[in-house]
């Protein structure tokens, strides 16, 4: 089973082998409201942990998505272009943004696991 980690910016990363799939959490999509656009990075781009790699937009808000870990973009979710609503309908699944080939899996250690993230969200009230 894939290991899913979370950031304080409400992104999730699900890692299988060397490849991590990245999206935003259900809490995040709920806060944003109806997602109308996602600006995705170019495949092949190298990103460092914390780099701005995508932008997710609702009607009234735009949020930068920062790479939770460093790596190389190997794929982006083409299905979003047809239906940005996937982010709202299935943030943790079909609404994923991109896949990264991790440059340093140890960077995952700094991220929250599911229980810690649930606790974090609770603390936001």
């Amino acid at each position: 089973m894939a290991d899913i980690r979370y950031t304080e910016d409400h992104e999730w990363i699900s890692v299988e082998g060397k490849v991590g799939t990245i999206g935003i959490t259900d809490y995040a999509q709920n806060q944003l409201g109806d997602v109308v656009y996602v600006e995705l990075p170019e495949v092949g781009r190298e990103v460092a942990k914390g780099d701005e790699t995508a932008v997710v937009e609702s009607v009234k808000a735009a949020s930068e998505i920062y790479a939770p870990v460093g790596g190389k973009v190997t794929a982006v979710n083409q299905a979003l272009e047809e239906n940005y609503g996937l982010v709202n309908e299935d943030a943790a699944g079909a609404g994923w943004f991109m896949k990264l080939e991790l440059s340093d899996p140890a960077e995952l250690d700094g991220l929250m696991d599911e229980a810690a993230y649930a606790e974090f969200v609770k603390s936001l009230g």
């Binding site: 409400h10 944003l32 109806d34 609702s58 009234k60």
Partner: peptide, 10 residues
């Protein structure tokens, strides 16, 4: 990161 999302449909 998040701004305030709000309903944009009736």
């Amino acid at each position: 990161m998040l701004n305030e999302g709000r309903q944009t449909r009736g």
